[in-house]
Design a protein around this nucleic acid. Sequence first.
DNA 1: GGTGTGACCAGCT
DNA 2: AAGCTGGCCACAC
Length: 115
Amino acid sequence: MAGGEREDSGSFFENVFAVVRLIPFGRVTSYGAIAAYLGSRGSARMVGWAMNASHTGVTDIPAHRVVNRNGLLTGKYHFGSPAIMQQLLENEGITVMNDQVTGFDEVFWDPGKEL
DNA sequence: GGTGTGACCAGCT
DNA sequence: AAGCTGGCCACAC
């Protein structure tokens, strides 16, 4: 009623940015977790696509805090250099080994649960 | 205006 | 057991 989409944005895109930007320091989340939080687990790919826009856009999105379900830095190659993503994660106190987050379950931040 | 792709996830064979 | 395909939505040509 009335307004209808009061969830602002009106696009999956903006919703993803909002959640990613809310990720606390030293925490990581997964694409599927964000997609599921938005109500569409199948749209996990869109989350990654949104990240791609964050690099071309003007928004400050900590995309390095977003990894795949395995805790693997899938999109590290999209940061311009494959070492940037891991460097940023280690900079926040997160240990990364072989492109994989160590203690992923300990640093995992679930938007649907924390929010 | 239609087609293809994209940093995923999960289910089926 | 592993590999592949489908599904989701949005953007680019």
